[in-house]
Nucleic acid binder design. Structure first.
Lengths: 112, 112
DNA sequence: CAATAATATTCCTTGACAGGAATATTCTGT
DNA sequence: ACAGAATATTCCTGTCAAGGAATATTATTG
């Protein structure tokens, strides 16, 4: 806990990192495996993983020579919670209400 | 349609822009109002709004002298859909399954 | 302890981005 | 058409992030 949601967004804003996350959705992977599948050089893979790690999106588990990265759930749940407040917005068709209010305003206090 | 989700993420990765979006959640606002509430100078507000606009997160509706910005629903729904595939991950406790697989692997084909 | 595999870190360079200040644009009313 | 309000754009500058290449670190095996 204690990760800022903007960190989540910026981390996922980079295409390679988004791709990594999508790979990890299907299960934990090794740095080398990630680099292979994404056509990345190993150092770049490590660097992106570092960013994801610091954003709390993944965690790492050393195994022998390797480091296995896997998704952490919390940031996704946080994202979900954040989205929740917007779901109500579109479900209530807030949109139309506002159009209505704008009409009122645009007609400068016309009283019927 | 046709907006990349990475664009959504990068747009929301900037704290001021995230803040703008959260303001707009409660209803459409004018550039000036946004600048006021966020303690931003008008040009910066306009610039951030431009980014949000190009990412498809907001739309603008000219009214007289002003421009009223409001949220567009689609990117949020897209985000929601994207998150959906991760919900199943954490709901199925995929995590434990993987720990199990890792154990197997770490013990190098030990057959009981 | 040497050799090797897997991964991380550093240094460098380049490009993107954010804020500040100034200026341009657009619309309205007269 | 002009003045003024609201907003957009441009230019400049400094910072930060990403890729490439080289090197350092860590753990395993013999």
């Amino acid at each position: 806990m204690g990760f800022k949601i903007t960190a989540t967004f910026t981390a996922l804003g980079e295409p390679n990192r988004l791709h990594i996350v999508e790979l990890l959705r299907d299960g934990p992977l090794t740095v080398g495996e990630i680099a292979d599948r994404l056509q990345l050089r190993q150092p770049q893979a490590s660097k992106h993983l570092r960013v994801l790690l610091e954003a709390g999106l993944v965690e790492v588990q050393p195994m022998a020579n390797r480091r296995i990265y896997k998704l952490r759930l919390e940031p996704f749940q946080a994202l979900d919670a954040w989205l929740e407040s917007y779901r109500s917005v579109w479900e209530e068709r807030f949109d139309n209400l506002e159009n209505y209010l704008q009409q009122l305003q645009s007609e400068e206090n016309k009283q019927n």
